[in-house]
Amino acid sequence: MPPVLVARRRRIALVLLQIGGPDRLGAVRPFLRNFFSDPEIIRLPGPLRAVVARLIAWRRTPVTTGIYRQLGAASPILGQTWAQGWAVAERLADLGEVRPFVAMRYWHPFAAETAAAVRDWRPDEIVLLPLYPQYSTTTTRSALIDWAQAARETGLDAPTRTVDAAPTDPGFIAAQADLIRQAWPRGGARLLFTAHGLPLSIVQAGDPYPDQVRASAEAVVATLGIPGLDWRIAFQSRVTPQEWLKPDTEEEVRQAGRDGVGLVLVPIAFVSEHSETLVELDREYRAVAEAAGVPSFIRVPTVGLHPAYVAGLAAQLRRALGVRPIQAAA
């Protein structure tokens, strides 16, 4: 009797691209050096950029080490990214064997490590999922360039698709709106969307990030449907002396104190908790708010594993694979 041939299930590698973070205090300086060595971040000729990166990393290491010491000596972003990957993969199980992989831009697991692991798994297809809701050359493009180089160098040649940035994706917007509703104070407040800033020179060179941040915020406001809602957008985390996007989040917190209104902060450009939410927003800006006399200060969580966000990511992946979504994000 001839052997029974069993068809192998379609193997799809889901590669989540994120910024990464140090996994111990001793990794803070090399993490910073990697960050500021990125040509999409510091737009200088290579040799000069390397010198500037080392200088900035050296100067910022003591402060940044203090920040990560408050987080238990390591960034939580890697664990959260893995959790997001498995949650999305579970929703795609009908497509075959979907396995998540994580590639971080500035610390382990680097793209080269992950590309080697993907190659060894021998997928039929690869889908790249940059976990940046709004496109920027400094995040999305940087991560995709990094991955492409790693894939070439490791001989990874499986067909690859990319999930495009979707600042108004229904799942992402529904998740943000739901989290705001859960946190909204009975007496109302000013809604402040805060996003990582960018040097103005990068925006003037054509980066669409601030426009996409506004598109996200406007979509959330429309979904909330609160009549006469007082809302604003601001930018945080300035790290170089050049002119950056304005208004500055810290200044908007002080303005709320002058105006005598409470604040509800929404990290509109972050999908995981990390130093910029857990320390900069929750501790540093809260202290600014208290000193400025802000009546109330509420920080909305990142979308994380919110069911609507995860469903939205799964729907985006299905579209990237040419498969019709089986359900709407909700």
Rank of each mutant, 00 (worst) to 15 (best):
P3M: 11
R9L: 14
R10I: 11
L17A: 04
G20H: 02
P22W: 00
R24C: 14
G26F: 00
V28E: 00
R29E: 09
F31C: 00
F35C: 01
D38T: 11
I41F: 02
I41K: 07
I42T: 15
G46K: 13
R49M: 13
T61M: 01
T64M: 14
I67Q: 02
I67P: 00
Y68V: 00
R69I: 00
V88S: 01
V88C: 02
P100R: 05
P100S: 11
W107N: 00
H108S: 12
T114N: 02
A116P: 05
P123N: 03
Y132P: 04
Q134M: 11
T137Q: 09
T139V: 06
S142I: 03
D146L: 10
D146W: 02
Q149K: 15
A165D: 03
D169H: 10
G171T: 03
Q176D: 07
A177Y: 06
A177R: 05
L179Y: 12
A183Y: 12
R186Y: 08
F193V: 07
F193Q: 05
T194Y: 12
T194F: 04
G197K: 05
L200R: 15
S201Q: 14
I202D: 12
V203D: 03
A205G: 12
Y209W: 10
Q212L: 08
R214T: 14
R214C: 07
G228A: 08
W231M: 06
R232H: 14
R232L: 11
P241W: 10
E243F: 09
W244L: 14
R254F: 08
Q255M: 12
A256V: 14
A256Y: 11
R258G: 08
G260N: 07
G262S: 13
V264H: 01
P267G: 07
E273V: 11
H274G: 03
H274I: 01
H274D: 02
E276R: 00
E276T: 00
T277C: 09
T277Y: 10
A287K: 13
V288E: 02
G293V: 06
V294M: 10
P301M: 10
L305Q: 13
Y309V: 03
V310K: 04
L317K: 08
A320M: 06
